[in-house]
Design a protein around this nucleic acid. Structure first.
Length: 1061
RNA sequence: GCCCGAGUGGUGGAAUUGGUAGACACGAAGGACUUAAAAUCCUUUGGCCAUUGCGGUCGUGCCGGUUCGAGUCCGGCCUCGGGUACCA
């Protein structure tokens, strides 16, 4: 960069200092202006720092914040850190460094990188989830959850004390609550319970509760993981195997909010795909529950003969059992021909007849021993076992067999299903496999029912008419569902019911680096600390590992007891605890008395625009909504939904560079074959010739010649056996060392051609000083793919896909002797788009780019790359274009000597048109978050003004304001150079005026049968009829219509003319 | 398997409501300036045919449809990406 240019380094530093000193971005409640809250998902400060993908969302939200601010809004735009996390703790385990120290260091690095990008964050509001002043409120919220229950009458959370008084007055029979299964008790019984018994009952109702649950246990991490932290049987962080295990854990009763979480989605402005993901995750399904009675010893007729003999008295179980099932298809009840229980179902033992005992036990054992991964891998395999017992189908009266199978899950519904093989694909497969009866009960309209035994697959659709179904025959599916539910209710054997896939959130982690639970234990029952004991600070420990008897690390803390000597909970909270309500704390971050004040919440309300990655769809974005709804129920926050609009920025993928390492033997064989094949040497050769167990690379019968290609030391060993073989067969022998293919190709050709011509040749020419060295071949070298393997090379060694060969040699020690097979002296690298990661050597660090091009260029380039929501590969080459644009912009204001020259002359109509067209376009693009097209529009504008040689203040001043959200440093500099002494941040956004955009004429594209042929300039005001006449009368038109009849003319005013011929 | 989303030049992408496909950039090729380099500027740049200019023709993953007109709408398929996985 020459001195005659824009000095971005100096300028950017200057304005960053100025913003910091002037506290330009600090905001407060200001009732004279409307608020607007723009939030980024806060980062976990990892040791690696930012790569170019991270700031993408921050840049977009920063542009939007600045834009809104200039539009007159009071914009809250804070930033902070999700500071608890596994990497710092893993590092602590390895090195003994306290995670707080690692985290502090990483945060400092993040902050430095963020500052360099010129963001407009109000850093006075920064929060860190690991700071006691912050996590006090995480703990406080937990206590509120513990002290709350979910009232299904009012459909909101209420205080647990109200429930206690209800129990004391009336028992629990009348209570409609989201709770665990609890036996009915009277007020009297309640009064007679011990405190411990009462506490145990209350635990079934609390929104934060302790329970034995099947959890995702990750042995490698030594902790439990939430469902969203596990993917396909492995931990999302670290990729370690996860197993199912039963443990006592804290859970949050998020399922109480399932409906509100589901229906709330309709009120917020998020992408349909994220909403769909959440809808699927919640997995609401409506249906009914139905009770089946087990057939007792009296029963004798079964639907199907089975392995057990139902007639044998001793082989029957008691008939006092009832099994409840959940189904979304009550209409298919007449087709239910068997029942399946989950292997863990509590009745399995009791229902198993002596005959079947062995089978059932074997199956249960098999299921237990299978890992989660094996189970998932074997989804398609049908397996199960018969219990020997039967239930009665309450509608058909038929006795149907009870099986167990692991395709029925204990955790969903009741852990039991009525199997309708004709209309459920899994039941169908099961029935086919075990030869169970299949009855068709739904018939597609207009079709003749067929024998389901001949079906290839079940008919699962909800479209159709009921058959073989007693009182619901001829009904449509929807009506039949209603009818069966109603009839079940009437008969007291079932009712309508809704089920959810969503599970309560496991809230305990066996880790050190997280929020301690504000909980202690008395008589093994948990109690919460009082508010004045908060925050409960994380205690020091001697090591960050679990104890020898497997307790979490906090069990190592000395005196981890209350003042009264009660032990404190040793689990800590999960990552999502601190991130679930942080946006609320930003409203009033320093408040020592409250989570946030009512006043601040009344003003800032909720987040208007939230920007972050889609990977949080089933984690943070659902937990935060739950957290917020709970606080809403408590009357703490005024909005039920926390994030009104959500934008998911796409990932920036890495663009890896590849070099091709030659497999020398394959290479030599390939090259030589190119020389020998198709009689190129005058005789025909065979490749990979075999004679008995001997194998030669090349053989020519005509020339009586054997050629073998190998490393020289290998050839030395082979020379004697080969020579004696060839002598015995009367053949000539050529042994060619690999080195010759790189150094002496001509020599090889000469030797072969001499041998082919019948001359005697020496089998092996000794070479000395043979070295091993890697050989790399350029991408477009013919045959490359046959003899080379692609390796990743650091992208800093590659420019425009050309490898810096000298730098490459010094990159890693073993490459120092590398040799290259080039294309005209150039080594061309291949490339691939994949995840940005250290191991692929494709990480682009923003600091380097800022150093070379400046923050404004980087900001605009990241936006220019493509639509914000789309994933796209990073390509460093393209940044030059934006860099040129920034300097072109600078040059609009400066002459050849880099002196500021601004004209005070009035702008021409043309210049005004360029300006106002740009303002209109940019404003529209900003509102649509179409930042890539906005950058293009700026480029077009500057190109045009450049062409007009426009340096007029009346044009450039609005332009500086217009571009300031995108290039804040450059625009501050220009604004001040033009004589203003107040920051451009505080200016208003320029407004476009229609009068400058009105055109007199429009250049109509004229097409014939839809194909554009020419253009015609016509007045904008001209009516359709006149346009038609003008076009048809034009010279150009006659050329195209010659000899053809015009059938129709379509005129769309100021758009297009289409002539049909 | 099921539910979403996407497929446009060598590359990133544009075309906002059915109305000029390829804006804006990168890269590439050629040229100007320069002792040289950097920087800057100019020309060309979807394919094919024609090339002396005019031009012609095909073309938005594939096949079909609606329409005066389809990258855009409809039906069917293919490929890639994301989510989910026995959820009854």
């Amino acid at each position: 960069m020459s001195f005659m240019d824009y000095n971005f380094k100096e300028v950017e530093k200057k304005w960053q200092d100025y913003w910091r000193e002037q506290k330009i971005y600090q905001v407060d409640i200001d009732r004279s202006r409307p608020k607007y809250y723009v939030l980024d998902m806060f980062p976990y400060p990892s040791g690696a720092g930012l790569h170019v993908g991270h700031p993408l969302g921050y840049i977009a939200s920063d542009i939007y914040s600045r834009f809104k601010r200039m539009k007159g809004f009071n914009v809250l735009h804070p930033m902070g850190y999700d500071a608890y996390g596994l990497p710092a703790e893993q590092y602590a385990i390895q090195t003994g460094t306290h995670p707080a120290i690692t985290t502090e260091k990483n945060i400092a690095r993040y902050r430095e990188q963020l500052d360099k990008l010129g963001f407009s964050f109000d850093w006075s509001r920064e929060v860190r989830t690991s700071e006691p002043g912050y996590y006090k409120w995480t703990q406080w919220t937990f206590i509120q959850l513990f002290n709350s229950w979910y009232n299904l009458e009012t459909n909101k959370a209420g205080h647990i004390a109200l429930l206690e008084s209800e129990f004391a007055m009336r028992g629990n029979a009348q209570v409609r609550a989201a709770c665990n299964e609890t036996a009915v008790f009277s007020a009297e019984a309640w009064a007679n319970m011990s405190e411990k018994e009462q506490q145990e009952i209350l635990m079934n109702y609390r929104l934060a509760y302790l329970a034995d649950t099947l959890v995702n246990w990750c042995p490698a991490l030594g902790t439990v993981l939430a469902n969203d932290e596990v993917s396909e049987g492995y931990s999302v962080r670290g990729g370690h195997p996860v197993e199912r295990k039963s443990m006592k854990q804290w859970l949050l009763r998020i399922t109480a909010y399932a409906d509100r979480l589901l229906f709330g989605l309709d009120t917020i402005d998020w992408s349909e795909s994220i909403k769909d993901i959440q809808r699927n995750w919640i997995g609401r399904s409506e249906g009914g529950s139905m009770v089946f009675e087990v057939v007792g010893k009296q029963g004798h007729n079964s639907l199907e003969e089975s392995a057990s003999d139902p007639n044998l008295e001793s082989n029957r179980v008691e008939n006092r059992y009832k099994i409840e099932v959940f189904t979304t298809r009550p209409d298919t009840i007449f087709g239910a021909t068997f029942m399946v229980l989950a292997p863990e179902h509590e009745l399995v033992q009791k229902l198993t007849t002596p005959d079947q005992q062995a089978d059932i036990e074997k199956y249960i054992q098999r299921t237990k021993n299978r890992s989660e991964r094996e189970r998932m891998a074997e989804v398609k395999k049908v397996s199960g076992a018969f219990t020997g017992s039967f239930v009665v189908n309450p509608f058909t009266g038929a006795q149907i067999p009870i099986w167990i199978a692991d395709y029925v899950l204990m955790g969903y519904g009741t852990g039991a299903i009525m199997a309708v093989p004709a209309h459920d694909s899994r039941d169908f497969a099961f029935a086919k496999h075990f030869n169970l009866p299949i009855i068709q009960v739904i018939n597609r309209k207009g079709e003749i029912p067929s024998d389901p035994l001949n079906w290839e697959e079940s008919y699962d659709s909800k479209e159709g008419i009921l058959i073989n179904s007693g009182f619901i025959n001829d009904m449509e599916v929807k009506d039949a569902i209603r009818a069966v539910v109603a009839e079940s209710e009437k008969r007291g054997i079932g009712k309508g019911k809704t089920n959810y896939r969503l599970r309560d959130a496991i809230f305990s982690r066996q880790r050190y680096w997280g929020e301690p639970f504000p909980v202690y234990y008395k008589n093994d029952m948990p109690y919460t600390l009082s508010d004045d004991q908060l925050p409960l600070e994380l205690p020091p420990v001697d090591a960050y590992l679990p104890t020898e008897n497997g307790e979490p690390p906090l069990a190592r803390a000395k005196d981890w007891l209350t003042a009264d000597g009660y032990p404190i909970e040793t689990n800590t909270m999960p990552g999502f605890a601190g991130s679930s309500g942080y946006y609320l704390r930003y409203m009033d971050p320093g408040n020592p008395l409250e989570y946030f004040s009512k006043e601040s919440n009344d003003y800032w309300q909720n987040v208007d625009l939230y920007v972050g990655g889609a990977e949080h769809a089933t984690g943070h974005l659902i937990y935060a909504r739950f957290w917020n709804m709970f606080l809403f129920d408590l009357g703490l926050c005024c909005k039920e939904e926390p994030f009104q609009k959500l934008i998911n920025q796409g990932m920036i993928q890495g663009r890896s560079s590849l070099v091709y390492r030659v497999n020398t033997e394959k290479f030599a064989e390939y090259i030589l074959w190119e020389e020998l094949r198709d009689r190129r040497m005058g005789v025909s050769f065979e490749k990979d010739f075999r004679d008995g167990h001997r194998k030669f690379d090349f053989f020519s019968e005509e020339a009586g010649l054997v050629i073998e290609v190998k490393r020289q030391d290998a050839l030395k060993k082979l020379v004697h056996p080969y020579e004696s073989y060839c002598r015995s067969k009367g053949l000539k022998l050529l042994l060619i060392p690999l080195i010759d293919f790189v150094e002496d190709m001509d020599g090889i050709r000469k030797r072969i051609s001499r041998a082919v011509q019948g001359n005697e040749v020496e089998a092996l020419v000794e070479k000395k000083g043979l070295e091993h060295f890697p050989v790399f071949v350029s991408k477009n070298y013919p045959g490359r793919e046959h003899f080379s393997d692609a390796l990743h090379v650091d992208i800093s060694l590659v420019q425009n896909d050309l490898l810096d060969m000298e730098a490459f040699k010094t990159w890693q020690p073993h490459l120092i002797r590398s040799k290259f097979i080039t294309e005209e002296g150039k080594y061309v690298c291949g490339w691939e788009v994949e995840k940005m990661s250290k191991s692929k050597y494709n990480v682009q660090n923003p600091d380097e780019l800022i150093e070379r091009y400046g923050a404004d260029t980087l900001r605009m380039y990241e936006m220019f790359l493509g639509p914000i929501e789309q994933s796209k590969p990073w390509d460093t080459q393209g940044i030059e274009g934006v860099f040129r644009f920034i300097r072109k912009f600078w040059r609009l204001f400066h002459n050849e000597l880099n002196e500021l020259v601004i004209s005070e002359e009035a702008a021409t109509r043309e210049e005004l048109k360029v300006l106002h067209r740009t303002i209109r376009k940019i404003e529209d693009d900003n509102e649509r978050f179409s930042f890539n097209t906005a950058v293009s529009a700026f480029m077009i504008c500057v190109n045009e003004l450049n062409e007009l040689r426009c340096n007029k203040r009346s044009i450039l001043e609005p332009l500086v304001r217009l571009i300031s959200p995108y290039a804040p440093h450059l625009s501050e500099e220009m604004w001040s150079l033009m004589g203003h002494n107040q920051s451009v941040v505080l200016e208003t956004y320029p407004e476009w005026q229609n009068e400058f955009l009105i055109e007199d004429t429009f250049s109509y594209p004229v097409s014939f049968n839809g194909k554009t042929r020419f253009k015609i300039e016509l007045p904008v005001e001209m009516d359709i009829k006149t346009v038609e006449i003008s076009v048809l009368g034009s010279e150009e038109c006659r050329k195209w219509t010659e000899g053809k009849a015009v059938r129709k003319v379509i005129v769309v005013p100021n758009r297009i003319i289409n002539i049909v011929i």
